[in-house]
Design a protein around this nucleic acid. Structure first.
Lengths: 238, 238
DNA sequence: AAATTAAGCTTGTATATACAAGAAAAAATA
DNA sequence: TATTTTTTCTTGTATATACAAGCTTAATTT
């Protein structure tokens, strides 16, 4: 597991606790160790521990209760794509298969790109990939992604299909999502999307446009997705 | 403006800065006063100021840049209902009109209510209201809300239509949203919803089910909404 | 035995401080 | 003048500490 050399302690704590929750070491309803206990374990002080617990709260991993402790919350179901950092913790993780329709390739930005691009972004070009996600064998989510081609050597080599895109970016390129914006519509599938998602053109489909800032300037990620919510739904915690 | 007597300083800061941004005192791209300046103005220290700025960042009001400052970010457009705390800052705020279809009334929970209720909630009953929101004259969003009827004396008296529901709850009942969950589908409007939103039954519509925990135990808010995204869309910052 | 009180845990808020690191402006150099 | 270096201002991370307030359990009292 390649790690940035000087990872802040509070981020180490976030990753550690998150992994233990994901792995089932802590289950729903369990109490995490108290803040003071965590201080001792990690040799730090409460403000640092609290910074980590605060972020885990925002991510929906725990709920904190004054006078009681940090309670591990509902394991995420649904597709979970609305929530930050693309933790595809949805539907049990095993029942989710991702197929790469367009392997990541370098190219120039499309002329009709719906977001404003800085000069630096224009010059850098982008990496494009298209994926189709199956939930329990049903093609449910089609996603096109554009990533500014800055500081991403040998990116196309890595297999983004297996791991989450965001995990790949974090692990191998130290790129992390900082903030973003998403727009949502309900649309009719149309012929192309209906074909991809094995449904009919008149079916209602969730359409989203997302842009995400990262810790690297000008490295912005855009994704356009179509989701068939006939059998599943999109879920999100805040 | 009724205020809880001992509002934490960092929340005062949040409200102050938020108001100044909403009022246009700080515009998009402007720099907020530096953390040290804010410390002096409010007679406090950086950790407290940073707690406030951190929450404003999460709310999408500012973007913080290492070495530069806190930049006031894009004013929210779209309907903004996906984001927490129902700040209906969407579409300019003036172009949004809310019509009360069912004035808030006390009742027992529906028998087919889709969420699990605790015994305390069952006993308490609920307050029900239904609203229709117009954006620039077009009926765009239909929302049904159920609130656990605990500690809300004279709630039905207040006019929830004008102010946001969440503002009313905060101002008069000291109820604040802590966390929540939302599920999203694309559905066909159907006759009933199509009638309310002045569209046809075959049109694709966003359907959401949301549950929100508050700072008061057992006081949970549920809302079910239908949104026509033909002319507008739902937006969300993270 | 039952109700009340107190003690001891927890998280919430806050102060005071220190150094690191990014960004921009000012000063020094070529 | 143009470039480089330095300085200064900014936010990021972290330690150490203090008291308030919510929750649970144990001790005390009735």
């Amino acid at each position: 597991m390649a790690k940035e050399p000087n990872t802040p302690l509070y981020k180490v704590l976030i990753d550690d606790l998150k992994r233990q929750i994901d792995d089932g070491r802590y289950k729903k309803g369990d109490l995490l160790p108290s803040e003071n206990d965590l201080c001792k374990s990690y040799g730090t002080t409460r403000p640092t521990v609290r910074q980590a617990l605060g972020e885990l709260t925002r991510m929906g991993y725990i709920i904190r209760q004054h006078g009681k402790g940090s309670i591990v919350s509902e394991p995420k179901s649904g597709l979970g794509i609305l929530s930050l950092k693309g933790s595809t913790a949805g539907v049990g993780k095993k029942s989710l298969r991702t197929e790469m329709l367009v392997k990541s390739k370098r190219m120039t930005w499309p002329v009709d790109f719906p977001y404003d691009l800085t000069e630096e972004q224009q010059e850098a070009g982008c990496i494009y990939l298209a994926r189709l996600r199956y939930v329990n064998g049903l093609p449910t989510l089609y996603e096109e992604t554009y990533i500014t081609d800055i500081d991403l050597p040998r990116f196309t080599m890595h297999n983004v299909a297996k791991n989450s895109l965001f995990e790949t970016l974090k692990k191998y390129h130290h790129v992390e999502i900082k903030e973003g914006e998403q727009k949502i519509w309900a649309v009719m599938a149309g012929n192309h999307i209906a074909d991809l998602l094995s449904t009919n053109a008149e079916n209602p489909i969730i359409h989203m446009k997302r842009s995400m800032q990262t810790n690297k300037r000008n490295l912005v990620i855009y994704s356009f997705l179509y989701c068939n919510t006939a059998d599943y739904f999109i879920q999100d915690y805040f």
